[in-house]
């Protein structure tokens, strides 16, 4: 497996008076093609971590290496071409006054000739299923649609990595599903690495690995199965657990013995089915 992102002993404090660092000695590496979910309670340093990866924030100490290139003032613009970022508020990242202008914004910045730009914008808009909205202004789009435009703006630049900085937090359930499905599909089609910072535990459960942040430190790394198997502990961290785990917890309280390992929704259905056919 090719390591695409490496963080080595990253520390960061916003201001000198701040006694508690936003990031405290964080190290990890991510392989190409992985879907990583970063979870953690509010103020645990998740967003700061995301901004560190694409150079919006410069770490006080430690090193960020992307695709073999260490992040520095000289390389930051090359690095940003490899890392696309979707932010939380869909309104505040829409630069252009129509969908196609916004998708083209990133391409304009890196000096792509206009003829190429037109096809790349069209392809990107098509990839997120927004073709019929290509001339619309942001005020006429729903939050989920705006986030899909933001994703189109990023895939037009053909990055290797997409960072979702709580990109679904401000969306309604429908918009959230649209965005997640779009990302999943594009990730498979283009072999992207996705880092998703999220409070939505069902979204995190779809990841290959989950990083748990707490008070600026990386507390735990594991597969969703490993992370959610701890159950009650994760609730104490101020996090939610996926629905099958909640159901398991309630069944246990009713005196029914449940398996210890984490079950996906399909796994839960199978297990329930078997349980009842035995009874």
């Amino acid at each position: 497996m090719e390591e695409i992102i490496q963080l080595k002993n990253i520390s960061f404090t916003y201001s000198e008076e701040d006694l508690r660092p936003a990031l405290n000695d964080v190290s990890f590496s991510i392989n190409k093609g992985e879907w990583i979910a970063i979870i953690g309670p509010n103020g645990s340093g998740k967003s700061t971590l995301a901004k560190t990866i694409n150079g919006l924030i410069e770490a006080n100490s430690g090193e960020v290496v992307l695709g073999g290139v260490p992040l520095s003032t000289e390389t930051v613009w090359d690095v940003r071409r490899k890392v696309g970022m979707v932010f939380q508020n869909p309104d505040n990242q829409f630069v252009g006054s129509t969908v196609q202008d916004d998708v083209a914004f990133g391409l304009e910045n890196i000096g792509i000739p206009r003829e190429q730009m037109i096809t790349r914008v069209e392809n990107a808009v098509e990839a997120v299923n927004m073709t019929e909205f290509i001339d619309k202004e942001p005020a006429r789009l729903s939050g989920g649609q705006k986030q899909r435009v933001a994703i189109a703006g990023i895939i037009a630049l053909a990055p290797d990595i997409i960072i979702l900085d709580e990109a679904t937090t401000m969306l309604d359930p429908k918009g959230r599903n649209e965005v997640i499905e779009t990302i999943l599909r594009i990730k498979e089609e283009r072999d992207l690495t996705v880092i998703s910072i999220t409070h939505d535990i069902d979204e995190a459960a779809k990841a290959n690995r989950i990083f748990v942040m707490q008070e600026g430190q990386l507390k735990q790394i594991g597969t969703p199965e490993e992370i959610f198997a701890v159950g009650a502990d994760i609730i104490e961290m101020g996090l939610d657990i996926p629905f099958p785990e909640k159901l398991k917890y309630q069944l246990q309280r009713q005196g029914i013995s449940v398996p210890d390992e984490y079950l996906t929704e399909e796994g839960m259905v199978d297990w329930l089915w078997k349980l009842f056919s035995v009874m």
């Binding site: 901004k51 630069v95 990133g106 730009m117 703006g153």
Partner: peptide
């Protein structure tokens, strides 16, 4: 932030 993350560096070299 969003503009910088998408490679905005000012007017120079922009198409």
């Amino acid at each position: 932030n969003a503009m910088e993350a998408r490679g905005y560096q000012g007017g120079e070299g922009r198409t």
